[in-house]
């Protein structure tokens, strides 16, 4: 019984990581209707950057965040202004294919720089520490940190979108790009900022991924799939829904894994398909898909 409680708790906390994967995707879809196929590869790119910084300078990976998050945000801004903005021409094929191309390029650049071997970011023991809750129930310290970060990111984004002038501008642009320009909103600048925020979160997600698990250059697509699943389960445009979606994935994965190690990831995909069949618009739908 205690084992099962631990399994479910582990799964719920794993949902925090998936939610971190997903918020960036949710944001770029919500504001620009951009589904970034290279999203997972950007997470892996951030993990490699962190790996390089941590092993080269010997700093703590949480300190490395101070470097990686702004670097990824800047990269996101540049990527949006130089490449992605040109792909948002109305047809969904163009952004999909452009980001697919980006995905292939990123994977192969990572192979040529870091080789195809898998890596992990050394974090000095924090990744294995546990917090006992009594009665044999324990929580991993590190998954708790990840979950707290995910909640913090979502609260921060909610405040940004709901309470600030920039957030209003994001929502207005998401509703109606042309009318937003009539308000004096420079949508190209705004899209650049949206991508910068999305990629900043990707930076966070990448470092957290790299501390928790091994990664290699080809790992990106599977992370994109988790992120996508969390967004769809939660309902397009709902950030708390995305967290719930991540938790559903995490719990089904850890229960599946406990039943048979081969079934873990399969169980989370099946949970996703089940939600899709039963509630095609997700659990907490908000934005309409175009």
């Amino acid at each position: 019984m205690v084992d099962w409680i631990n399994t479910v708790l582990q799964g719920l906390l794993l949902g925090g990581l998936y939610a971190l994967f997903a918020t960036g995707l949710s944001l770029s879809f919500g504001i620009m209707r951009l589904v970034n196929i290279a999203h997972g590869d950007m997470i892996v790119l951030a993990a490699y950057l962190a790996y390089a910084v941590v092993t080269h300078f010997g700093i703590n990976p949480f300190v490395a965040l101070l470097l990686i998050v702004p670097a990824m945000a800047a990269w996101g801004y540049v990527l949006q202004r130089v490449v992605l903005s040109r792909s948002l021409t109305g047809s969904i094929l163009t952004p999909l294919m452009v980001t697919l191309g980006l995905s292939i390029i990123t994977q192969n650049v990572l192979v040529s720089v870091f080789s195809a071997d898998s890596r992990a970011i050394p974090a000095g023991g924090v990744e294995t520490a546990a917090v006992p809750l009594g009665g044999g129930v324990t929580l991993g310290l590190y998954p708790l940190i990840v979950m707290a970060t995910a909640i913090g990111v979502i609260v921060g984004l909610q405040l940004l979108l709901g309470r600030t002038e920039l957030g209003r501008a994001f929502r207005a642009t998401s509703d109606d790009q042309e009318t937003a320009q009539l308000m004096g909103i420079d949508n190209r600048l705004l899209y650049g900022l949206a991508m910068a925020i999305a990629m900043g979160i990707v930076g966070l997600a990448g470092v957290y991924l790299g501390i928790r698990a091994n990664f290699d250059p080809s790992a990106g697509p599977s992370h994109l799939i988790y992120a996508f699943e969390a967004v769809v389960i939660g309902g397009l445009g709902s950030l708390w829904g995305t967290l719930a979606g991540g938790m559903i994935l995490g719990v089904s994965q850890s229960i599946g894994f406990r039943l048979d190690p081969g079934w873990g990831i399969l169980a989370s995909h099946l949970a996703f398909l089940a939600v899709l069949v039963l509630k095609p618009n997700g659990l907490f739908p908000r934005t309409r898909d175009r």
Binding site: E165, R168, A169, R171, A172, S174, D175, D176, T179, A180, M183, G184, I185
Partner: peptide, 20 residues
């Protein structure tokens, strides 16, 4: 009219002043 559906009435007015 083209009001922004995800903004409240007051937010619609406020965003009109975005250009400062």
């Amino acid at each position: 009219r083209k009001l922004f559906p995800s903004l409240s009435v007051e937010e619609n007015l406020l965003i009109g002043g975005y250009a400062k």
